[in-house]
């Protein structure tokens, strides 16, 4: 009968806290790059110019159809040799997750833009607006409000995916958990605590997202019309 002893875990709480901080840092960085990149990819994909839409489609398909861990390994182990650059786990992680989340965000953007009714396009064009003005003043503002829930959900997915960086030895929460487990010989307690930390953080975020969705739906601006 195993006797649970969480004391060693609390003793190393600072290591775990550092890990959590790094997880959040990584998630934030990937979002900061991924969202604008996702918008660019979406607009390229919607462009009538094939020179723009094909490469964008290719990037989106490749990054959605290959496992994130394979992408991470490629960026960490293969890319540095190919372009003769030093690669740290953090840089490889930010690079991988920025592009990967951009690929998913691009689809969210595209869905949102396409969901704005034709009549809005027509009215704006009938006023004499150039296509870029139409996008900026009329279509995107409406699309963005509808896409907020999907964005938040993808952001939460991203936070879960960041655990992969532990495998390439970036000091995120999971990596730190492993370190502490090996140090204290208490894998059961440590991993359980970490699982609970992830659960509470992500659950809180999910609940927030559901709240946002409910409020948006109430004000008539959700996706369902």
């Amino acid at each position: 009968m195993h006797v649970w002893n969480f004391a060693p875990v609390w003793a190393n709480a600072d290591l775990l806290a550092l890990g959590l901080l790094n997880t959040l840092k990584l998630t934030g960085a990937a979002l900061a790059f991924g969202i604008p990149l996702g918008l660019v990819l979406a607009l390229m994909r919607l462009s009538p110019a094939r020179l723009l839409s094909w490469p964008a489609s290719a990037v989106i398909e490749v990054f959605r159809t290959t496992p994130p861990l394979v992408q991470l390994f490629w960026f960490f182990f293969a890319l540095p040799i190919l372009i003769h650059v030093e690669m740290t786990p953090y840089v490889a992680a930010v690079l991988t997750f920025s592009i990967q989340s951009a690929a998913f965000f691009a689809e969210v953007f595209r869905g949102g833009i396409v969901s704005v009714e034709r009549g809005q396009w027509e009215a704006a064009r009938a006023l004499g607006m150039a296509p870029r003005q139409v996008m900026r003043r009329v279509v995107l503002p409406q699309a963005v409000k509808r896409m907020v829930p999907a964005f938040l959900e993808r952001a939460i997915e991203l936070m879960k995916t960041t655990t992969l960086v532990a495998i390439i030895s970036y000091a995120d929460l999971l990596f730190q958990t492993n370190e502490v487990a090996q140090k204290t010989f208490r894998p059961l307690e440590v991993f359980t605590v970490t699982a609970l930390i992830y659960f509470f953080v992500i659950f809180a975020a999910s609940t927030l997202v559901q709240g946002v969705e409910r409020r948006l739906a109430a004000s008539g601006e959700g996706m369902a019309r």
């Binding site: 879960k160 995916t161 655990t163 992969l164 532990a166 495998i167 999971l174 958990t177 492993n178 991993f191 970490t194 699982a195 992830y198 659960f199 992500i202 659950f203 999910s206």
Partner: peptide, 9 residues
Amino acid sequence: NTPVLVQIL
């Protein structure tokens, strides 16, 4: 709401 890798480990 928990990452798969955490569960596997």
